[in-house]
Design a protein around this nucleic acid. Structure first.
Lengths: 194, 194
DNA sequence: TCCATACCATACTTGCGCGTATGGTCGAAT
DNA sequence: ATTCGACCATACGCGCAAGTATGGTATGGA
């Protein structure tokens, strides 16, 4: 038995998971439209012939990659949210945490941009519902009635995705680190009750 | 001299402006990616041969169409804003007005989705800066200091574009008319000082 | 009347990226 | 040692949309 072939660096043989991870990297860096099998094969040091052994089609890869990301993402979010019982503290922590992991939200931003593709549209819808109900629940626990909780959650979530979108490729004036943190604080004091 | 050939309905000969307007319709309805010269020619009842007389390339059409929209849009915004002197009333009116003209923001939403194209990226940046400084000025006039005004403006603007994005193709649970108006009211009371 | 110009049709070429067909290689199990 | 199957290379076909080449038609002015 070979010594842990999964961790051999730059090994010749690839698995489907390798392709999915590489696909996610491309999506995060250049968007969904930039995901092409030949260029991806070049990145991995192989050719198309390899790809079409692992996946029947390009869309199959994209779907598998997104599913992988969605599972990972959901697990992280859930575990983070379970931690804090006080809803107001939970909301503040959520905002702060999200604000620091901009890197990890690049894929979601890319998917948002490609939400007209029939493959990603249901994904966006699922994620939006989940995150929205997450926020809505927190606001309800914080004392908002159902209506206002839903509205405030929607406002917070649209501000989040709008921020992602406009910061994608310098769509907005850039902020330095201090300015950014000050902005996050402003958002929290504006959208989270004391 | 012919009797006003500009207004002859379904006249055979087209002008560049006709192509630009038709292009804007397509972009508003199906997005930037759906803008193709052959399909557009079919819509106008002609063929490619006509198109390449008016424009050297597809991107040239897209750019001309966007420029046309940008000029029109800017004029409307400016004239609307000049009207109301009280900054708080102006902000409320702005939010209400924008909320009612979702139709007219379809093109901006489409451009946001295509903001990775080098042709539209500078447009998004220009528009963002203009609208952001518009909001920032209003908040400053309303008594915010420079820092908080910039932050609140950014929050409002990202909420706006995030809303556009997530409502594009049912990325979010739909609202009926009353619910929508209630949401707008909530946004106003949350983001505009009394 | 006749021509020049503006506008349009038809028939190509071209490039790109997906997918297919087919054969090759390397490791592991018999 | 042979064989089998997982993995990969090479070469090709194909569809789509952009762009080109070239010729045709209509209209206003000389």
């Amino acid at each position: 038995m070979p010594a842990n072939p999964q961790n051999m660096e730059s090994r010749a043989r690839l698995s489907a998971a390798d392709w999915e991870q590489a696909a996610l990297d491309v999506v995060a860096a250049e968007g969904v439209a930039a995901l092409a099998v030949e260029s991806l094969a070049r990145v991995l040091g192989v050719t198309k012939g390899s790809f079409y052994w692992h996946f029947p089609t390009r869309d199959a890869l994209l779907k598998a990659a997104i599913d992988r990301w969605e599972r990972r993402d959901e697990d992280e979010i859930i575990s983070q949210v379970e931690a804090i019982s006080d809803p107001r503290l939970r909301l503040r922590d959520l905002f702060q945490r999200v604000s620091r992991e901009v890197q990890s939200h690049r894929i979601y931003a890319a998917l948002l941009q490609a939400s007209d593709l029939p493959l990603v549209q249901p994904v966006i819808e699922r994620i939006s519902r989940r995150r929205l109900s997450l926020l809505t629940d927190a606001y309800r626990e914080a004392g908002f009635d159902a209506r206002r909780a839903a509205h405030r959650a929607r406002l917070a979530y649209t501000a989040y995705s709008g921020f992602l979108q406009l910061n994608q490729r310098h769509g907005m004036p850039r902020m330095d680190q201090d300015e950014y943190q000050a902005y996050v604080d402003h958002v929290i004091t504006t959208l989270v009750p004391d």
